[in-house]
């Protein structure tokens, strides 16, 4: 057990845990950030996606010790922001959400994409979402959601 500090959604937190505990479990269990989901647990599905120091990563692949001192943003951290609301509304209007299990990860991938490229074309969107699996929608509606977010949010990103 060690006391490990990092920044979670803009606030410093300190967690007492084994440094090899997965960041995914730290976020869900210790920090109650249940917007972060576990799908596969092995880097294939993107349900556990968070931002680490501004870039998209899978939290199931990162031991807590590797995240010490970094800035982590979970779906809870963007949900209430203008950008987060824009993505949520766009996904809703596009019909991009069915069971919703993949949605938080898809939102994080969308936020990461629009941050580096606020006018992505369809193939750029598909590439950016390529690490996120969805069992329900067939992806087209999610791509549409990202397109709507990018149009409506052109002044946000």
């Amino acid at each position: 057990m060690k006391e490990i500090k990092f920044i979670l959604n803009g606030k410093e937190v300190s967690v007492k845990a084994d440094p090899l505990k997965r960041l995914l479990d730290v976020l869900r269990e210790d920090e109650k950030m249940t917007g972060v989901k576990e799908g596969c647990g092995e880097g294939e599905c993107g349900a556990c996606a968070v931002l680490k120091d501004g870039v998209l990563v899978n939290s199931c692949m990162i031991p807590l010790g590797a995240a010490e001192g970094s800035e982590i943003v979970t779906p809870e951290g963007i949900r209430e922001t203008d950008k987060g609301k824009c993505i949520i509304d766009a996904f809703g209007d596009a019909g991009a959400v069915q069971c919703g299990f993949c949605t938080p990860g898809m939102m994080m991938a969308t936020e990461a994409l629009l941050t580096i490229n606020n006018k992505p074309d369809e193939s750029e969107i598909r590439e950016a979402l390529s690490g996120n699996l969805c069992r329900c929608t067939g992806y087209d509606l999610i791509v549409k959601g990202v397109q709507i977010a990018s149009e409506r949010g052109k002044d946000l990103w």
Binding site: D18, L20, E42, G43, M61, I62, P63, A66
Partner: peptide, 19 residues
């Protein structure tokens, strides 16, 4: 352990438990 993308999969255990 650098990115952990090989090691965390190789040593993964039951969901929610330590690798």
């Amino acid at each position: 352990l650098a990115g952990g993308t090989d090691l965390m999969v190789r040593y993964q255990s039951w969901s929610g438990t330590l690798p």
